[in-house]
């Protein structure tokens, strides 16, 4: 447990200390700013489609740091050192997941407020969006840690990571965007289920990927 906390705290410090956490937020806000330029300043259209766009932005924002999640630690021998100390790969991944979410989830939830204003989302919609992001971003974080572990030994992993992760994130996106509907309660529950599934799968899948990369 001590090791788990030390690892997660290290990742959070890395995320906030070197400005890594601001990157997803700036990206998120940029998308919200650019979208009206793309479809025109029609308030109704923006309000109707804006929530879905923000969900796509959140998905892409979780992908941004994917090449910095596992690969540097693998290269500099940190993962080997932890393994020598008897720390299981599964708990390393769980700590990485916790650190990654704490590094990008809360800032994203805050950035969603100005972004919603830029896209003319009303207060009810904003509440539903925040609730959905709160439930969905842990799932996105888990998926990006999984993909980060899978692509850690590969050169130019960034593009490959996108190709691998986007299809896996489709269910989160569908239920996330679905939960924006005023009667989207069931979508919210399905979003929670998908998110939990991603979180439950990640430690084992990513742990196996890290072990396989040692060979």
């Amino acid at each position: 447990m001590k090791t788990f906390l030390a690892l997660a705290a290290r990742d959070v410090r890395l995320a906030y200390g070197r400005g890594g956490a601001t990157l997803p937020i700036i990206f998120f806000l940029l998308v919200a700013t650019l979208y009206p330029f793309g479809v025109g300043p029609d308030g109704n259209l923006l309000a109707k489609t804006g929530g879905g766009v923000l969900w796509i932005a959140a998905l892409l924002a979780s992908l941004l740091p994917v090449d910095r999640l596992i690969a540097p630690d693998m290269d500099q021998g940190l993962l080997d050192q932890l393994a020598v100390r008897g720390v299981s790969e599964e708990s390393i991944v769980l700590a990485k997941f916790a650190g990654h979410w704490l590094g990008f989830g809360p800032p994203l939830l805050i950035a969603a407020v100005p972004a919603a204003a830029l896209l003319r989302l009303d207060a009810n919609m904003l509440v539903r969006l925040e609730l959905g992001l709160l439930i969905g971003t842990p799932g996105l974080a888990a998926l990006s840690v999984f993909i980060a572990a899978l692509t850690a030994g590969v050169r130019g992993a960034g593009a490959l990571a996108g190709l691998l992760m986007l299809p896996l994130a489709v269910p989160l996106l569908i239920f996330g965007a679905g939960s924006l509907d005023p009667y989207g309660g069931s979508a919210l529950k399905l979003l929670a289920a998908t998110s939990l599934l991603a979180i439950a799968m990640t430690p084992f899948a990513a742990g196996a990927a890290i072990r396989a990369a040692r060979e």
Binding site: D75, Q76, G77, D80, Q81, V84
Partner: peptide, 15 residues
């Protein structure tokens, strides 16, 4: 007993 490994990687945070 406990093992310590010193290989070519430093495993210390560079910054």
């Amino acid at each position: 007993g406990r093992i310590a490994l010193a290989d070519e990687s430093l495993a210390l945070d560079r910054h």
